[in-house]
């Protein structure tokens, strides 16, 4: 091992033999695992979107009124223009904004409940091995259960209203929240616990003042990723339903499907990932700002809170 590295160092500095000169140009355009400039990254991303739209445009192109001449029939896939013409209808008649907010409210309630239960319990489970072993079977069950199969069960338990959707999300996500939280606490290096012990901290103080706060960045990161998962699950709960319209993006898709309209479905499918992505970015900003020592944010919120708490004695440096 050492020999190899010793040999490798001079070899890298020595001029390469003739005919083995590196393909410098190629490496500059496509460096292995390298960074790309913002402009280049934007260009490639834009190219992808344009490519997808172009393919969509070509396979659905045809003279107006002669649908049978298209490569793909409009009953399978409407054309780009037809889809975007449906925008006003989706926003107006189908109340896209309201339905998005209804869906978000459900995710926030269900996933919020998971956090309220899962995070404290996860921290305790990491700290108390007996509790961890006690919860282990539930974790295995909760993480591996096919989520869709839970839906009929939740109808029996929680009825067909809002409560059922919130509880479905809670059951589907709480095991992940709990086990990710426990893993984050177990990942805090033992030396912090040792330090706290030699500084006279009690067991409870170690949990609340050391392990909890030091695991917080990882916990927040897990919750951000799991929020995306919960956003996917809520669609499932809204698609499978009894009775009348209950609102939400899933319901919007359901209604369009029953009326045989493809355009609203396609639009909602475009909008859902965009909303999810925007939420994820917002949470990422919050995360890096809350934990600048871990994610390199500006730390505006902690500094502002510190300034509020300590007043003049610490200066607020944005």
């Amino acid at each position: 091992m050492t020999e190899q590295t010793e040999k490798a160092v001079p070899a890298a500095e020595a001029p390469l033999p003739r005919g083995e000169e590196p393909a410098a140009e190629g490496h500059r355009i496509a460096p292995l695992r390298g960074e790309l400039s913002n402009t280049a990254a934007f260009f490639w991303g834009f190219t992808c979107i344009a490519g997808v739209l172009a393919v969509w445009f070509v396979i659905t192109a045809g003279p107006p009124g002669e649908a049978e001449k298209r490569m793909v029939s409009p009953t399978t896939l409407p054309s780009v223009a037809e889809t975007f013409q449906a925008i006003p209808r989706v926003f107006g008649e189908r109340k896209l904004v309201t339905n998005t907010l209804v869906t978000l409210k459900r995710v926030c309630l269900g996933f919020g409940l998971s956090c309220i239960v899962g995070v404290p319990l996860g921290i305790l489970a990491a700290c108390l091995p007996a509790l961890r072993a006690f919860l282990a079977p539930l974790m295995v069950f909760g993480r591996n259960i096919p989520v869709a199969a839970l839906i009929p069960l939740t109808f029996f338990f929680f009825g067909i209203g809002e409560f059922q959707k919130v509880m479905f999300l809670f059951i589907a996500s709480v095991a992940f929240v709990l086990s990710d939280t426990a893993a984050a606490v177990l990942d805090v290096p033992q030396r912090y616990v040792d330090t706290a012990l030699t500084l006279g901290a009690s067991r409870w103080q170690i949990i609340t003042k050391v392990l909890g706060p030091l695991a917080a960045p990882s916990i927040f990161n897990s919750l951000r990723l799991l929020f995306g998962l919960a956003f996917g699950y809520v669609m499932l709960a809204e698609l499978v339903k009894f009775g009348s319209a209950s609102g939400g993006l899933g319901d919007l898709i359901n209604m369009s499907q029953r009326r045989g309209e493809r355009e609203p479905i396609l639009l909602v499918l475009v909008i859902i990932p965009m909303v999810a992505w925007a939420i994820d970015r917002a949470l990422w900003w919050l995360q890096s700002d809350l934990f600048p020592y871990r994610y390199g944010g500006a730390g505006l919120i902690p500094r502002f809170c510190g300034w509020l708490l300590h007043g003049r004695r610490t200066e607020f440096r944005p």
Partner: peptide, 27 residues
């Protein structure tokens, strides 16, 4: 363990979530 025997480790063990003052006053 107890605070009558203080310990300084080789690895940095500052509590990252606390300011310098918060670290020093932890005990």
């Amino acid at each position: 363990p107890g605070s009558d025997r203080g310990m300084v480790f080789q690895d940095y063990t500052s509590f990252d979530n606390r300011t310098v003052l918060g670290n020093v006053t932890f005990g």
